[in-house]
Simulated assay, not measured.
Amino acid sequence: MINIAQYFTEEKRNSHIKGVIGHLNRKFLHTAVRYKVKPKYYFEKRFYKALLIDREFLKRIIFATYDEIESFESSDSYKAHRLFFLLCLPSELRNSEPFSTHFGLESNCFPRELIGQNIEEISAEVRVNCKKVFDYGSFSKISRAEIYDRGQWNAYNYLNEFMPKTCPYCNIQLITRLEDCLEDGGLHYEMRPALDHFLSKNKFPFFALTVSNLIPSCKECNTDLKLEKNFKDPRHINPMGQSFEGIAKFDIKLRDDSDILQAIESIYNYGELNTGSIKIFLDTTDTASDQNISDFNLENRYNNHIENVRFFLEKLPKVAKEKIKSYQDLFEIDDFETALQRFIEHSLNPEDHKDVIFSIFKRDLISKYCDL
């Protein structure tokens, strides 16, 4: 897990909020009826009025941190518009704690317009409007036949100069964004990685455009493994602000304990490590990290790709100060760090890790096993 929040610059924040504001204006103020959202109930109108008028309120939703989206029921925004948020939730979530308790309190003082009405039908109406307002589809779906420019608010421009080159959930798969520059200076978008909703946009539609809820990710993590899993309860690690650093570390162990003498002899006498006898695992006592490791099936996936790090593992026992200095002298390399990076074929610069597959795995093993 890699923290990518630091790469979402102030310029990106300003661009995104400007795009969201323009999108909201079209939804509520556009002259074409098909674009408009027409809230029916007073508590809806009150919420959307706050979105349009109070920029700070809008920003608290769009720029809510990973902690705030996971515990939003404790926020002032939620408390001020609790009935709206509760009726946006699907019934199975609304009927779970703490929301069921909150809804019980709200039902004791329903506004007159809700008394005697079918609450599930009203909730369905509210959810439909909420999905239209926080409309991820308008943000993400672009006709391949059309030409766009860098200034437009869409998922392609959102990811430009922000997304890492590897999936921050797994650091196994490369993710790609491509576009064609046209002769007139315009752009033709070709492909981009998935933007995973850390909290499902179907369960929490009001967070569909929230920055910390939009994680650029690979197909395996987003489509094949995560799906609609609830990352709020139990709590998970969110790469828009969190990482495994300090709470979960990669390590290796023998697949069969009976191979230990042979492994020691190979390392001691020949400086070799038989990767066929090695198993990769992630060591953590943190429950949130453990949830990510389990849901993204990280240990099995890393072991399935162990051949991709075979040369690194074979070099690992040979990494010692005196050997790297000999390598440095032999190839006339100016400094020790450069020699080390060339020898192990891995950058020691943390800024590079988000763009290189298996970089966190390599970092952890270098830190533990290399005499530097």
Rank of each mutant, 00 (worst) to 15 (best):
E121M: 07
F343L: 07
S96C: 03
D283H: 08
I264S: 02
L199A: 04
D149L: 10
V309A: 00
N154S: 06
R301P: 10
Q341N: 07
A124P: 11
K249Y: 12
R310Y: 00
E73F: 06
F103G: 14
N3Y: 03
F72C: 07
D54N: 15
N154M: 04
L330M: 07
N304G: 11
D76H: 03
S217K: 03
S212D: 15
L273G: 03
P205N: 01
T287C: 06
H81S: 04
E345D: 15
G246S: 05
N269I: 00
E265M: 01
E73N: 07
L209M: 03
Q262M: 05
S266N: 15
L89K: 01
E113D: 12
E190L: 15
Y369L: 04
F139T: 03
R310W: 00
S77C: 08
R363F: 13
D196Q: 01
K203R: 13
S359M: 01
T101I: 11
N297Y: 06
I2S: 12
L52V: 11
D371L: 05
S367N: 12
D54Y: 08
I215L: 07
F72R: 00
Y302D: 03
K226Q: 12
K321V: 12
T223S: 15
E345M: 06
L182T: 08
H353I: 04
P350H: 02
V319P: 08
R342Q: 13
A194Q: 11
I247G: 01
I115M: 14
Y7I: 01
R55I: 09
F358V: 01
Y369H: 04
K38G: 07
I62S: 10
L52T: 13
P164G: 08
R177H: 02
N238P: 14
D184W: 03
L58N: 15
S123A: 12
V309E: 02
G19E: 14
T338R: 11
L87M: 15
E322Y: 07
E183F: 02
S347Q: 13
Q262C: 09
Y270R: 01
A5Q: 14
L254W: 00
S289T: 02
T223D: 13
L51Y: 09
K315S: 01
Y268N: 06
K203W: 08
S200E: 06
P111N: 04
W153G: 07
L182D: 04
A339C: 04
C181Q: 12
K279A: 05
D283P: 09
A50Y: 06
Y35R: 07
E44G: 06
A248D: 14
E120Y: 03
Y268T: 04
E220W: 09
L29F: 13
D352T: 08
Y66N: 14
P350E: 05
Y169D: 11
L52E: 10
L365A: 04
E11I: 08
S326G: 03
R177K: 02
I175Q: 00
G271C: 00
A339I: 01
F28W: 05
G151H: 08
D283Y: 11
N95E: 09
F206Y: 07
A32I: 09
S100G: 05
K368W: 00
P98W: 00
N160G: 02
D196N: 00
S266L: 13
A155P: 09
L365W: 09
N230D: 15
K27E: 13
T101D: 15
V128H: 08
M1G: 14
H197D: 08
K49D: 14
A339H: 01
D329G: 10
F85A: 06
I115E: 15
V20W: 09
S212C: 12
I306F: 00
F296E: 04
Q328S: 01
